[in-house]
Design a protein around this nucleic acid. Structure first.
Lengths: 244, 244
DNA sequence: CGTTCATTTGAGTGCCGTCAATATAAGTGG
DNA sequence: CCACTTATATTGACGGCACTCAAATGAACG
């Protein structure tokens, strides 16, 4: 895999979210990145570890999650190509959650050392990456609202619409009626804070109602209008416009 | 109010969380800060606004919250002296949630311009503040787990123990059996994702069981052992040790 | 073609929500 | 300082969303 396509999605993403000048872009392009392939459903970094590098998703999907002592798991976020899901480890040295792949993925590892050199040399890039971690936090805030306030069907369609919107800033184009959503029903339950049994019932209900069909790792939108009404999805919290 | 006591809690907090050298500390001390008093239960910045300054809590308590279109409110975090709850606005220009006081408070406002000058001149300070926002995000992650996975009584004691632990890094000393918790039962409900009626029942149950007494804006620990067992509180996610 | 994992469905239970009323505390003006 | 107003806390009755336990079906994979 050539260097350009490795950083392409990262740059596309940083540029939709921040303003960078050519020198910044060149500096990011010249970061040393170690590309490795990862099987699906495998840990990348685990709770308690002290990683010395950050992980750029080049291809595939990842999730972050935390497990309680009672043995329950909560999925905290879903990550797509262009994301650096453990960028926080640059300053938070011990992991407080798990990061793992959802499907077979191509990952690029960037050492903390080289990132630190870059951010200290170029405050502009530091700001862009900082901003990236702040958007990450904004998504967590919305996730809290989702789990805390919305009824289960609305929770599901909300995270689905969030994922669709975020995929746009990498893939480009217009909102598709069908898109990847590579979670099992058990994982959907872990993301929404419900049991897999209940997740199944909600999915069936949404399908029977002709709103969305969530199956085989994909979402098929059946009725865009009623879906929007149910999800109450407002993308402002994604902060995708650097000017705003 | 003299300058030293204004920044004292901020410095104490940044130093428990990051390593700063004397020049960094001097630079932070010389930040222009406008001190203002605020009544209780008043908005500081609201969803949709574009603030040009950040707010340091000098005295008092604040919360961040988001409201859904359905009119429900979710409290996202509780803030104490030394916190800069809207530090994210430095890079995320449009607010995606509300920040308001819980009780009458003394606030210090620091312009984005002076913060940006400081962070660009001193990468060390930038890293410390960046780290601060990352801890903020780590707390959000734990909050998601709390709301998504724990039963309501455990949720309540978990946020109470988190607040107690965080108060320690400002106030110093050892874990007190009684501490401030200035939330009404309605606000407790909004923080936990339950109704105020149910919040009341849980509080009563915890009191009757002799575990904790949450009343009149205070928490009284009745049985430290059973409390710890119920809350499953592990402070690792607060990242209070700069070395770790 | 058997093993394993994911999905689906049923029956019964319980946590938590809604609606409603009352009590208590806190604050305000006369 | 008391009457009045309002916010907060408390309690009861009832309903429903979501959980547990359990089993069956379907899909994927070596």
């Amino acid at each position: 895999m050539d260097r350009d396509s490795v950083v392409a999605s990262l740059l596309r993403r940083l540029e939709t979210v921040s303003k960078l000048d050519p020198a910044d872009i060149a500096a990011i392009r010249s970061l040393p990145i170690a590309v490795r392939h990862w099987a699906g459903a495998r840990a990348i970094v685990s709770d308690g570890e002290r990683p010395s590098e950050c992980c750029l998703i080049i291809e595939g999907f990842c999730i972050r999650s935390k497990s309680t002592e009672a043995g329950q798991r909560q999925i905290l976020s879903i990550h797509i190509p262009g994301d650096i899901p453990d960028l926080q480890s640059l300053h938070l040295h011990r992991m407080d959650h798990d990061l793992s792949t959802l499907v077979p993925s191509t990952l690029g590892f960037i050492s903390h050392a080289s990132l630190r050199t870059l951010t200290h040399a170029r405050p502009n890039v530091a700001d862009a990456l900082w901003r990236d971690t702040l958007i990450d936090a904004a998504i967590f805030r919305e996730w809290i609202v989702n789990v805390g306030q919305r009824p289960a069907p609305a929770r599901l369609v909300h995270i689905a619409l969030e994922l669709r919107r975020r995929l746009l800033s990498v893939r480009g184009g217009t909102e598709p009626a069908t898109f990847e959503f590579p979670l099992t029903q058990e994982q959907i339950g872990e993301a929404l804070g419900i049991t897999p049994v209940h997740a199944n019932r909600i999915i069936r209900q949404l399908r029977e109602d002709g709103i969305v069909d969530v199956s085989r790792g994909q979402v098929h939108v059946l009725d865009e209008t009623r879906l929007a009404e149910l999800a109450q999805f407002d993308d402002r919290y994604l902060h995708q416009d650097p000017a705003a």
